[in-house]
């Protein structure tokens, strides 16, 4: 990889200032960015580490009951800290990659990258979470804008993610065994006013809500409720791991498994 200046600020303000430098990029856990830089897919001139800023770390409970997770909190820490308060999110975090990856990778890094096969976009969109940045709050429905694309402006930093806690929820993924990313994953969350279903790994447009299933599950929150549904293979990812038709089928299968797990 090409060389760069490395800076590790200890406050959000200093991080924002450092990110205004020419060709600066933020570095969270680095589990995607460092491999991308090795391949020269990314070549920042300045890397601004976000791992030394205490206010970006940790899990807490807001007054309204929401689970608030600092953007630089690692997957491993989230798995531990949310086990009692939002088990579906704890299970999702504890199933990402492998233990060593979970000890470095962060929720904010994963969301800012918006890999079409990452787990967090499904958990965040499926929960209807809010992404808080240094300048504003962004609803999950507005945040994800296609493969590797988000609503974030240059220099904007995710500081926190706020998850409303549903009545029942679960995540189910079919893993691509080499990369451990989701070949297809479904996050299902049942709230008092309806059900949300978010699918990752399947679509060329990145994470998306499966509205048809949301409607069917809103009427009857049972695995059988999605049996009669099908998803079009149009726009689904096709690669050596699976055809678009295979992924379209997995959307229903993984949703069904997630609902069964949430019972």
């Amino acid at each position: 990889m090409y060389n760069f200046d490395f800076v590790k600020p200890t406050t959000l303000q200093d991080a924002i200032a450092a990110l205004s430098r020419d060709e600066a990029m933020p570095l969270a856990g680095g589990q995607t960015l460092i491999p991308s830089m090795k391949q020269r897919l990314a070549a920042p001139s300045v890397l601004v580490s976000l791992t030394g800023i205490p206010e970006l770390k940790g899990v807490c409970r807001a007054d309204d009951g929401a689970v608030c997770i600092g953007a630089a909190t690692t997957h491993a820490e989230i798995a531990r800290e949310t086990a009692a308060i939002y088990p579906a999110i704890a299970a999702l975090a504890g199933g990402i990659g492998d233990p060593a990856v979970r000890n470095r990778g962060t929720i904010g890094g994963s969301l800012a990258n918006n890999d079409p096969s990452a787990c967090w976009p499904a958990g965040v969109l499926g929960s209807g979470a809010t992404i808080v940045t240094n300048t504003r709050q962004i609803a999950a429905d507005d945040f994800f804008q296609g493969m590797f694309t988000t609503a974030l402006e240059p220099g904007e930093i995710i500081t926190e993610i706020r998850f409303p806690v549903p009545e029942a929820a679960a995540y189910a993924k079919f893993e691509q065994p080499a990369s451990r990313f989701a070949l297809t994953g479904a996050f299902v969350a049942k709230f008092a006013d309806g059900v949300r279903v978010a699918i990752t790994g399947a679509s060329e447009g990145g994470v998306f809500r499966w509205r048809e299933a949301e409607e069917a599950l809103g009427a009857s929150f049972s695995p059988e409720a999605v049996d009669g549904l099908s998803v079009s293979a149009d726009g689904m990812i096709g690669d050596l791991h699976g055809t678009p038709e295979y992924r379209a089928n997995l959307v229903r299968v993984m949703t069904r498994r997630a609902v069964a797990r949430a019972q």
Partner: peptide, 21 residues
Amino acid sequence: GACVVHVDGKAVKSCTMLAAE
């Protein structure tokens, strides 16, 4: 995982962490 070491007691892949970190 051939490069796993412990950093502050946690297993990490040392090929995917900067020395500066």
